[in-house]
Design a protein around this nucleic acid. Structure first.
Lengths: 366, 366
DNA sequence: TTGTAAGCGTTATCAA
DNA sequence: TTGATAACGCTTACAA
């Protein structure tokens, strides 16, 4: 199989192993170095004649340089690890699109790992990523703790966190400007005449963005007269929703009976969907007449439901994350950066001012 | 940097490059071969003493074998390419979950490529995949044509198609049993008293599953009396919906005026969503009272909208695809297989029989 | 302008 | 039971 003089010029045939740089060199009647030079764009160093022969040989053998071998030799393989907690959440997919576009533009290949909300998977995937010697990692996960990321940070592999910070880790971070987004939403609700706000969020432990959003909600309330605008928080664990939904019903009922104008504010898309489904089961098709619902995350069904949302700049978040990584890989050694991008309020019917709504004024404009 | 006698037993420090097998060998006071043997589970060949030393050295240096180097030497890197046309479609994400689970179970690492509905990207990614020397590919794309896949098939790299076949290519294929699924849905609609069915599908060129579903719809109609049950098809191009939506309105209006009971049947989730949004804009919040809508793909918002669907066995489709690949990689050389999995009818309010609906009987039960 | 040879981190072959 | 040593496919001094 090794050296059949007759078949030296054979076309790539079925079942043939891929051509190597050596095959190409032999075919072009030159050395491996020249092929390598050609591949790496060191044109001008090659005589036109040789270049042509190389081109012909490559085409003939349908040669594709082996990235693995390249990476091994060069010490970098252009692979960027991307750990995602949940692709089921459209937010993640959108961020991913930004990441992919940026990777493509900068010549990286994203190695996408989807942990499907399993902390255990996250650990395994992080291990795997180091094993494949990724040059950097972008992380949007649930159970990331300091120790898990040490393998990277200590090895000098840059890490960028998306949508959350991790205690004890100093790395670049990209995400929504939660305080501003939540404040914008809260003010919108109050402006529309709602005076009983319920912020609904998943358990905040270990996910900084949830914590931040909840805190921002409480902070926003300070802008209004406590006697007029009431605000409270409800923790909803999507893995065990029953108790929270019961509590939700109770509060909605109480608000109704007290003659208050209630608005529910979901901290993200998945929470909003679960709550919407529940409200529909509970109040029937025109549940939106009973309670107003808005959320962070402009889910695809938001338009169908006519729900007001805060749209996150997902694409830019992804792009920025890659850019941060790229800068670090280029040798930039500044302190950890935090990039908070603004959200966009998308007003729909769900939070429209009802005809008899009172006008509520701010305590202060700050 | 190479041999500092003092730091031979140093703990992994910040900025240090990852330990190699040579480092571990030195640390354990043995040769690389033994380390390699240990890594590959050739236990029993190693003396307990040596094994212990190796374990200690690995732990101390936090050593992780380099998959790239392994792949280079072994000729296989456990990488499986996965080309996805559109992660925005929940169908894809669900299939992906099955794929990931199976890959994990079988020791593969999926290299996920998301073409974001761009045929051009698909081509680029396929190139890239061959460059990374994936051992197999799972493809669910838009513009896959014979030539594009030749690089793999000719090189002996197994290919599995998901949800569609490609003319001129003989490979394993996994997907929904479209004829059965569509027939089931059609019969359901007729059973519920609808007698004017409109099947809505994206342009069928190049995507076999769309073609199959449309054909199956037409075929299903044959089971009923043509004078009683009317059926027709509407092509909706999601990149340019206006004309199709106009036509849709026209047909809905006509059916209404003719006193027919109309049901819209979307060939997949994205079409259903687009149509639902349009109907809501057109007919207001209680659009469902005007037209019945069902679809293939049990989208997350289907429950919220109370829409009847056919749920695809997405997880199993993904799992099966990997298994097919795994069998080929194990040397199985049988003819191309086609695995068609059954869908599941999820009945919700959208297609509930209206009180005054006539009962329509089949022409034949076959 | 071109080629030779060493080496990236593994595994496999062979000998001790 | 162990360990040199030669590949794997590529890049990169260094020579010519």
């Amino acid at each position: 199989m090794s050296d059949d003089p007759i078949s030296t010029s054979r076309p790539p045939v079925f079942g043939a192993r891929r051509a190597t740089i050596t095959d190409v060199a032999r075919e072009a009647g030159t050395g491996k170095t020249s092929i390598s030079r050609y591949l790496n764009g060191e044109t001008g160093v090659l005589s036109p004649d040789l270049r042509e022969r190389i081109e012909a040989a490559i085409a003939k053998l349908d040669y594709r340089p082996n990235q693995m071998a390249r990476g091994l030799k060069r010490g970098r393989n252009r692979l960027i690890g991307m750990l995602l907690a949940d692709l089921t959440n459209p937010y993640s997919v959108e961020v991913l699109q930004g990441i992919e576009a940026a990777c493509h533009a900068l010549g990286y290949m994203p190695l996408i790992c989807h942990a499907a909300n399993e902390v255990d998977m996250e650990r395994r995937y992080l291990q795997l990523l180091t094993t494949y010697r990724v040059e950097g990692v972008i992380v949007n996960a649930l159970g990331v703790k300091e120790e898990l990321l040490q393998g990277f940070t200590q090895g000098g592999i840059p890490v960028v966190l998306v949508d959350r910070t991790v205690e004890g880790i100093v790395t670049d971070m990209v995400g929504l400007d939660n305080p501003a987004a939540v404040a914008m939403a809260t003010h919108h609700l109050v402006d529309e005449g709602f005076d009983e706000l319920l912020f609904m969020v998943q358990p905040v432990t270990h996910v900084s963005s949830r914590r931040l959003r909840e805190a921002a909600f409480q902070a926003s309330l300070a802008a209004f007269d406590t006697h007029v605008v009431h605000g409270s928080t409800l923790i909803i664990d999507l893995a065990d929703v029953a108790p929270a939904l019961d509590e939700l019903d109770r509060r909605v009922k109480a608000a109704h009976e007290a003659g208050r104008r209630m608005a529910l504010f979901a901290a993200n898309g998945p929470v909003a969907l679960r709550v919407a489904v529940h409200l529909k089961e509970r109040h029937g098709a025109d549940w939106q007449a009973h309670v107003a619902l808005m959320s962070i995350d402009d889910s695809e069904w938001a338009q169908l439901a006519g729900m007001t949302t805060v749209r996150q700049p997902t694409y830019d978040i992804g792009r920025r994350a890659v850019e941060f990584l790229h800068e670090r890989l280029g040798g930039a050694a500044m302190a950890a950066r935090e990039c908070l991008l603004p959200g966009e309020l998308v007003v729909r019917a769900s939070t429209a001012r009802k005809h008899n709504a009172p006008h509520i004024s701010h305590v202060s404009e700050n």
